[in-house]
Design a protein around this nucleic acid. Sequence first.
DNA 1: CGGGATCCATTCCGATACTG
DNA 2: CAGTATCGGAATGGATCCCG
Lengths: 138, 138
Amino acid sequence: MRGSVVNFRNKAEGAARAIDISKLDFSNCPVRDVMQQIGGKWSTLLLEALSQQPYRFGALRRMVPDISQRMLTQTLRDLQRDGYIEREVFPTKPPSVEYRMTDLGRSLFEPLSRLLDWAEANHDAVRAARARFDQTPP
Amino acid sequence: MRGSVVNFRNKAEGAARAIDISKLDFSNCPVRDVMQQIGGKWSTLLLEALSQQPYRFGALRRMVPDISQRMLTQTLRDLQRDGYIEREVFPTKPPSVEYRMTDLGRSLFEPLSRLLDWAEANHDAVRAARARFDQTPP
DNA sequence: CGGGATCCATTCCGATACTG
DNA sequence: CAGTATCGGAATGGATCCCG
């Protein structure tokens, strides 16, 4: 398993004592840290869009019709912050801004894409399981 | 791309008119529907744990020391609802409950695991990008 | 056109207390 | 042991208005 589930080495290792949870830094866990961002409501949708080709702000907005302007801006900024996408401003009037994937983003999207393929292929099975669960007596 | 980004066929296709967003059912989008659950704060951690072997409630609690009892219960129920894990109750005194992955869960964890591998391998790059972004002038 | 700033609703999550 | 119930705070996301 990737280190431990929480990805840290207990400094009191060898001492079979209880560990002080408050002293641990769980943000060092890659699973948590990366999945946090990927798991956002709009992240994968935008990564999928930008995996095809660069798009401008307005184009992305049209591709994901129910995203708010605020969340589009914010999600794009967060993806840029993590190094998955780049932002280029063209000083035209009115200005235009283009977003494109970075190499890091493309390397992320490789395994991510396989997961999305799975989601599409097994969506029915998941929905069926859900329906079954919801119908059994409480 | 998997259908459109939002995964629906515009029924007014061919008519280049604006579509009525309020009439669309975005929950039919597998990407959204599956990633929603996977993206939860604890889901991947628990899936990773259970991908190894079945575990009891208390064991999972110890493997993820900072999860609350409430969230452990709830996340496990949600994962069970989606068909990724099974729950078996042994009517001992006191009762013991074991959680194990289903075939569906194992098939999900295959691509998911690749993504977690990526996260572990590229965590430093992500953190570096983040630090760079946060240091550039506001 | 591509945002920033504000305000508000919802949802998520943790802490605590109680139970078969 | 493995939950359930309730509460409150934090985080998340949407709506609206403004701006260069």
